[in-house]
Design a protein around this nucleic acid. Structure first.
Lengths: 175, 175
DNA sequence: GCATAAGCTGAATGTGAGATTCCGGTTAGT
DNA sequence: ACTAACCGGAATCTCACATTCAGCTTATGC
């Protein structure tokens, strides 16, 4: 593959990631092309169609998140590990990108990766519960959902105040 | 107005409210018509166009919410009043319907009603803070945003567990 | 019961926002 | 300098709605 082609391809994926992250739904091929500084035609040289492009970045994002999450398993305190996972989730266009892909994905690894990540997070949540940093009445599965709520807001960050407030709801009640 | 016309009109608005509530974005006139059990043409007999229909139900929803919120002002404990307001917010297709209307609304009362409701909620939040049921480090304005986060999830309810967990983040930290 | 205005239906049409194609012009790489 | 890879972006194709309108129904007043 020619050097410029490689360069363009990565410009496209990162543009797509950026836009999917901030505009969420409704990222047009044309917008992505403009953001990447290439013509629309170039998108089609690298990806057979819109869905292929989206699924591609979704797979990348999930893989990265999976790796980051794996690295947190077993760390103590688990609550902090959970916060770091949120950080990573937020950095990736995960929820947003996935939201763009409706119907059966062509890439079978998509649901697999997702399930794996969920399982790991649930595991960390269980640890946090054992350590007393997490309400006992929240099933680890639900933790994932709360994380989603916190993360799906546009421009969320684990260190911003609002996100923090939402996550604090997961900690054991004071009385 | 003929009796059947009145009946149809209300079938239309309630169908629109229901659909806007569950599908959020992207409610087509045809979907509304089907849900209401009438032909599309009938929608246009009652509302000049899509926007008019949407704004109409948005105004209704906001009026109702405003009234419900007014009724909670001054109640003690304010925290409980806040929870009840959330209940009402959730019952109405508020956020969702508003999200459907982009650009300058034709109905000027829309932003006015919204501002009024926000002000009332902020007031109740301030009371709750005074009563020690709400973190001191959350500006009342931000309370509204957290409420939005909690409410904007599809099918949220103040009494469902997940919503409750998110709202608990607003309470004073235990240490 | 009937006249008739008010209502209703839903296929047909209009439209706009994108997705996708494709052909002439550009390059990286040798 | 040559050429297989590439690229740009206007032109085209699609499709999902919104909106209209020419008949057909049905309340309602008499």
């Amino acid at each position: 593959m020619r050097a410029d082609a490689r360069r363009n391809r990565s410009a496209i994926t990162s543009a797509a990631i950026r836009l999917a992250g901030e505009r969420g739904e409704a990222v047009s091929m044309e917008d992505i092309a403009r953001e990447a500084g290439v013509g629309v035609g170039t998108l089609y040289r690298h990806f057979s169609d819109r869905r292929a492009l989206l699924e591609d970045i979704a797979v990348d994002a999930l893989r990265e998140l999976l790796e980051a999450t794996r690295a947190e398993v077993g760390h103590t305190p688990a609550w902090e590990a959970l916060l770091r996972v949120v950080d990573h989730s937020v950095a990736l266009p995960l929820a947003l990108t996935k939201a763009l892909i409706t119907g059966e994905p062509d890439r079978p690894e998509l649901p697999e990766l997702e399930a794996e990540v969920h399982a790991l997070i649930a595991g960390i949540a269980a640890d946090a519960q054992r350590e007393g940093d997490l309400r006992a009445d929240v099933p680890p599965t639900e933790v994932v959902r709360v994380l989603n709520v916190a993360v799906c807001r546009r421009g969320a960050r684990a260190d911003d105040h609002l996100t923090r407030v939402v996550l604090d709801g997961l900690r054991p009640p004071k009385n």
